[in-house]
Simulated scan of single mutants.
Amino acid sequence: MQKFITLGEGHGDLFELEALIGHNASRIDRGIFLHTKDGPSTFILIMSPVRGNFQAIYTIYQGVLYKEGTGRKYTLIQEWCKAADIPVVEFSTRDPEDFYEREQFYQYITGVLRLNHLIPPMT
Rank of each mutant, 00 (worst) to 15 (best):
M1N: 13
Q2K: 08
I5F: 11
T6Y: 11
L7R: 04
G8I: 08
E9N: 14
G10N: 11
G12I: 08
L14A: 07
L14P: 00
E18L: 01
E18I: 03
A19T: 06
A19R: 07
L20W: 02
L20H: 04
H23G: 09
H23P: 06
A25G: 05
S26P: 02
R27M: 03
R27Y: 04
R27F: 01
R27C: 02
I28K: 01
D29Y: 00
D29W: 00
R30W: 00
L34R: 03
L34Q: 08
H35C: 07
T36F: 11
S41K: 02
T42L: 08
F43T: 02
I44E: 02
M47T: 13
M47S: 08
P49S: 04
V50F: 09
V50Q: 07
R51H: 12
G52I: 07
N53P: 12
Y58H: 07
I60W: 05
Y61F: 13
Y61Q: 10
G63W: 02
V64H: 09
Y66A: 03
E68C: 10
E68A: 11
T70G: 07
T70L: 10
G71D: 07
G71M: 06
K73E: 12
K73F: 03
Y74W: 12
T75P: 05
I77W: 06
E79M: 11
E79D: 06
K82C: 04
K82F: 09
K82M: 09
K82H: 05
A83V: 11
A84L: 01
A84F: 02
D85S: 10
P87H: 00
V89M: 04
E90Q: 12
F91S: 04
S92F: 07
T93D: 01
P96Y: 02
E97K: 14
D98E: 15
F99L: 03
Y100M: 15
Y100N: 07
Y100E: 14
Y100D: 12
E101W: 04
E103G: 13
Q104P: 07
F105T: 03
Y106P: 00
Q107Y: 10
Y108R: 02
I109T: 05
I109L: 05
I109F: 04
G111V: 13
G111N: 09
L113F: 08
L113A: 12
L113Y: 12
R114L: 10
L115D: 15
L115S: 13
N116H: 14
P121Y: 15
T123A: 14
